[in-house]
């Protein structure tokens, strides 16, 4: 059984970042790049599934700049068996990423594509569902628990009102949510050790066909400065004055 895990290189989600003054992109000076936190959860889950089903092979894939090797090395250090880096300096929007991943899935024939529900930079929450549609595979998004049974996968997924359990026949696309697991910590030596695992670099098999384009980025509108109140009575008084209660 093969699990394919797409991972994206994103700006450190905990860094304070702002758009460049000319609006052409984010100011990345001095900001680290990390594996998208949801993809880290997906890799962790794949590794835990392999603990129970040793026949599982885990393939991590990233589409983007050569620097995404760092994130793939981390995936390997966490336990992925091999990695594929689809190198390109072109801009792939989410549908183009889904096109390229669909082409890869047709070649690699994984049983499960396990991936983040959302990239913390573009916050799109699109690729997994688009990929599932393009492949015509079942999908279970926002997973908080995954059980692989013969020929299918049972996914507990978070919903707007609680949760539900879906059973999907394999092959299927599963996107993960925060509650699925807590990824293991990998120290630098582990990442260096992962250098001996196979990492295959290739060119994209599709050329990106962007369906959207980011024209510019602006800082969010500033909120009017607030104030501290000295007591509960002052707080309740201020809320009454504003008509908030």
């Amino acid at each position: 059984m093969k699990i394919l895990v797409p991972v994206k290189r994103v700006l450190d989600p905990f860094a304070k970042v702002r758009p460049l003054p000319d609006g052409s992109g984010m100011d990345t000076a001095g900001v680290k790049f990390e594996m998208n936190p949801f993809d880290e959860i997906a890799i962790e889950e794949a590794v835990r599934q392999r603990d129970q089903h040793p026949e599982i092979e885990i393939v991590a894939v990233s589409i983007g700049l050569p620097e995404a090797e760092d994130q793939l090395r981390k995936a390997l250090a966490m336990g992925a068996d091999k990695a594929i880096l689809i190198e390109s300096t072109e801009t792939f929007d989410p549908p183009s990423i889904a096109d390229e991943l669909a082409a890869l899935a047709r070649a690699e024939q994984p049983d499960i594509i396990l991936m983040g529900k959302q990239a913390t930079d573009d916050d799109s929450n699109q690729v997994g569902q688009m990929l599932a549609a393009k492949l015509g595979w079942p999908q279970a998004t926002f997973a908080s628990k995954i059980v692989i049974v013969a020929g299918s996968v049972q996914v507990t997924r978070e919903t707007d009102t609680g949760d539900e359990v879906l059973e999907c026949a394999l092959p299927a696309v599963v996107t993960v949510d925060l509650r699925l697991n807590e990824p293991r910590y990998i120290a630098l030596p582990g990442i260096i050790k992962a250098r001996s695992k196979p990492l295959d670099r290739r060119a994209p098999t599709t050329s990106p066909r962007p369906r959207t384009r980011v024209r510019r980025l602006d800082p969010p509108p500033a909120r009017a400065p607030g104030r501290k109140v000295a007591s509960v009575d002052e707080l309740v008084g201020a809320l009454r004055e504003r008509g908030a209660i």
Binding site: V17, R211, T212, R216, P220
Partner: peptide
Amino acid sequence: MVTDAIAIESPTVYKRPIVAGAAIATVETL
């Protein structure tokens, strides 16, 4: 596809927050 639109400039141009709200992107659909 445009996720989480917060404003419309035209049927081909939208605004949406990205990077946890650190920026508002003006997105054109092609």
